[in-house]
């Protein structure tokens, strides 16, 4: 039985650049399921990032519907979208975007602090340590981002993305700044997350990524096709 968490229906996105309309997303229809690892590939300017922004609820489509857990989210206001992003989606970036003034475990606590599902700070602290343990950095909990290697920072970023038990993990070129060993580690970790019934959607240029994905999608001139 399909376990669809996110559904895009007839999605179109047009950018206007100097009186010229550019079709960034052209009639996208796709279902994303829990427990699967999706890889989106495509050349630069093909619309990958635009798609990821829509999936991450930080951009709007010009037409079509985005269904999240059977709910159409097109009409949600900014506060409701922020709550959805906080509780249901985890983000991983190429540049990590960790707060340099916070220690590893504190960075992981940040999304949990505004999540009302956590009853107290102690619970939040415990979960941040648990997540650090999951990404193999329990001994580095008191380190600041600049005291961690690139691979370690990305693992902290993954732990932060998992903080609020999200259904969806969005990863935008997560290994773009990492060496091969760290890349393998991250891909394995993301695959493991998919096996834990999360929907992992990753954009990557890495040739190795295909070996880990359950579904490979290619963006080409705004159109999405399954490979």
């Amino acid at each position: 039985m399909k376990n669809v968490v996110l559904k895009l229906h007839n999605i179109k996105k047009i950018y206007k650049v100097k009186d010229e309309n550019i079709l960034a997303l052209d009639n996208i229809n796709i279902d994303f399921e829990l427990g699967k690892f999706y890889l989106i590939i495509g050349h630069s300017g093909s619309g990958k990032s635009t798609l990821l922004h829509l999936l991450g609820l930080i951009d709007n489509a010009d037409s079509g519907e985005i269904i999240f857990n059977d709910n159409n989210i097109s009409n949600l206001n900014s506060k409701e979208l922020a709550k959805l992003r906080n509780e249901k989606i985890g983000y991983i970036f190429q540049e990590f975007y960790l707060d340099k003034y916070l220690k590893a475990y504190e960075n992981i606590m940040v999304p949990m602090l505004i999540n009302k599902n956590f009853s107290n700070k102690k619970e939040i602290f415990k979960r941040s340590l648990l997540l650090l343990d999951k990404v193999g950095l329990e001994k580095r909990k008191n380190h600041f981002p600049k005291q961690l290697s690139g691979g370690e920072q990305q693992r902290v970023c993954i732990a932060r993305a998992l903080a609020n038990y999200p259904d969806i993990i969005l990863a935008d070129e997560p290994t773009g700044n990492l060496d091969i060993n760290n890349e393998k580690y991250i891909f394995n970790l993301l695959k493991e997350l998919a096996s834990e019934n999360k929907c992992v959607i990753m954009v990557s240029h890495s040739s190795d990524a295909k070996n880990y994905a359950d579904v490979i999608l290619e963006m080409d001139n705004g159109r999405l096709k399954r490979i």
């Binding site: 709550k83 975007y97 999304p111």
Partner: peptide
Amino acid sequence: SINKLIGYDN
């Protein structure tokens, strides 16, 4: 912006 992205509202 990261804080906003991970759910912090205005």
